[in-house]
Amino acid sequence: MPVLHNLVSNKELKARMLAETEPRTTVSFYKYFQIADPKAFRDALYIGLTKLKVFGRVYVAHEGINAQISVPASQYESMKAFLYGFDPALNNLRMNIALDDDGKSFWVLRLKVRDRIVADGIEDNSFDASDVGNYLKAADVNAMLDDPNAVFVDMRNHYEFEVGHFDNALEVPADTFRDQLPMAVDMLKDQKDKKIVMYCTGGIRCEKASAWMKHNGFDDVYHIEGGIIEYTRRAREQGLPVRFKGKNFVFDERMGERISDDVLSNCHQCGVPCDTHTNCVNDGCHLLFIQCPSCAEKFHNCCSPLCMEESKLSPEEQRTRRAGRENGNKVFNKSRGLLNMTMAIPLPEKK
């Protein structure tokens, strides 16, 4: 029986990936379809992808598959052929190739069975996730952006919207997709006569969101085929104006793909124009926030003076401070303020 999980440390795996000389292609894909035995599906998929030296993050559930991976360039076509033949539902699966790719996005393959491929919080058994809205291709998106009767709804998290979005798109200011779904219905309840256009990074969230809107009585619902990634790729290939502005946040080491030169956000510490996401280097924090180069140098890549002070302590002292401490939310939300998002770090008691 082959080993169906990684046995090597992350540090060693990352070093091996960085030492590779062959370029890698970063790609994402998803598919909603019924998987009778997700565990068996996962194990067989793990064996096949491992043979092709695929790295990345893949979720499998009864409702389908969701993946963000990298593959050696020479193995890309073999990987596609493997997936197309793995299950009839995956034949001609759409691949979203990364727009701004250095091939260093992943260094290990993590393939997990989940209850849902996208956590949605939906408990309504009558909901049919396959009853989705109409797909929009790149030219259709641009035409719809000029339609005064259309409302574009961004189904990504607030920190994704902050660094990039379509002009006049509606932000649904929630921390999670499960919170966004009911919020979107409520925010649009008086616009059921409008054309509702949902969009997200690669299509997986907005496709389910379009089905949810239809389930809640919205009749004229659309979603962008392949999300921002596919829209941008096709618009560039076809010589169309790319109407998305700023950066497209991605969930790997890059944390963003540059779509336009527009910088829509600001450093969360000093306020200068900036759209570079980072994680606080303090092991007791790892807050996701936007930081400019000047503040990165000033705060030693930390989100606050408190985290900077703690990160300089010995590992034992850091563990002592973290013991019993509630870490709180790990994402900065500008509506709540940076210092409120970092957990209170107690200073040592005076003796």
Rank of each mutant, 00 (worst) to 15 (best):
M1G: 14
P2W: 02
H5D: 07
V8K: 05
N10S: 14
K11H: 12
L13Q: 14
K14E: 14
M17Q: 11
E20M: 07
T21R: 11
R24Q: 03
S28I: 02
Y30R: 05
A36G: 06
L52K: 02
F55A: 00
S74K: 01
S74I: 02
L83A: 02
L83D: 07
G85F: 04
D87M: 04
L90Q: 00
L109Y: 08
D115F: 02
G121R: 04
I122N: 05
S130W: 11
V132F: 07
A139R: 10
D147S: 13
N149G: 11
A150N: 14
V151D: 03
D154S: 08
N157V: 14
Y159M: 03
G164R: 00
F166L: 13
F166T: 11
D167P: 15
E171C: 14
P173C: 13
A174P: 07
D175A: 11
T176W: 01
R178T: 06
A184Y: 08
K192H: 09
R205N: 15
C206H: 13
E207G: 11
K214N: 09
G217F: 07
G217H: 11
Y222T: 01
H223K: 07
H223N: 02
I228M: 05
I229G: 03
E230L: 04
R233F: 06
G239I: 00
F244L: 06
K245G: 09
N248R: 01
F251V: 14
G256Y: 02
R258S: 05
S260E: 08
D261V: 03
D262H: 06
L264H: 05
L264G: 05
G271K: 02
C274D: 12
C274K: 00
H286L: 05
H286N: 06
C295Q: 09
C302D: 13
S304C: 09
L306Y: 01
E309Y: 05
K312C: 10
S314T: 15
E316W: 05
E317S: 01
G324L: 10
E326Q: 12
E326F: 09
N327M: 09
V331K: 03
S335A: 12
R336L: 09
E349T: 10
